[in-house]
Amino acid sequence: QVNIAPGSLDKALNQYAAHSGFTLSVDASLTRGKQSNGLHGDYDVESGLQQLLDGSGLQVKPLGNNSWTLEP
């Protein structure tokens, strides 16, 4: 069960990665100043990332080996 409060997208993504045990490689300029609506409930990694990114204009991309990145 994930419980991440709304706020900074950077912070939300870092909390989610730490909670879910995956690696997220992101260029900080992509997420700077963006906000997230947070995340509450049970999600697989990709669904949770998509939910956190909702409205940010960013997309999640798998890199393999439980690693992910973001792209515009």
Rank of each mutant, 00 (worst) to 15 (best):
Q51S: 08
G57R: 04
E71F: 11
G7I: 06
K34G: 03
S29D: 13
K34F: 08
D10F: 13
D54Q: 15
T23C: 12
L24E: 02
Q51L: 13
G33K: 05
L70Q: 03
H40T: 12
S29R: 11
S56R: 00
V45T: 07
P62S: 13
H40Q: 13
D10R: 07
T23D: 08
V2A: 07
G64M: 05
S47P: 04
N14Q: 15
G64Y: 04
S56N: 02
L52P: 00
I4K: 02
A18C: 12
L39C: 05
S47C: 12
S47W: 05
G55H: 05
L30Y: 07
L39A: 02
S47H: 10
G38R: 02
Q1H: 14
R32L: 14
H40R: 14
Y16A: 00
P72R: 10
E71K: 07
G55D: 04
Q15V: 06
L30T: 05
Y43M: 07
S36Q: 09
I4S: 01
S25Y: 15
L13K: 02
N66F: 06
P6W: 04
A28Q: 11
A18Q: 12
I4H: 04
V45D: 03
T31N: 04
A5G: 09
D44A: 07
S67L: 12
L9P: 02
E71P: 00
Q15T: 09
N37M: 12
S67E: 12
Q50L: 12
L53R: 00
N14I: 13
L39I: 08
Y43F: 11
L58S: 02
L9Q: 02
E46M: 14
D10C: 13
G55I: 03
F22I: 15
W68T: 02
L24K: 00
K11M: 13
G55Q: 05
S47D: 09
N14E: 15
N3M: 10
D54S: 14
D42C: 15
S29V: 10
Y16H: 02
Q1L: 13
P72D: 07
D10E: 13
N3F: 14
H40L: 10
S36R: 00
D42V: 14
P6K: 10
S56G: 03
T23E: 11
L70F: 06
S36D: 01
T31R: 00
Q15D: 14
L30H: 06
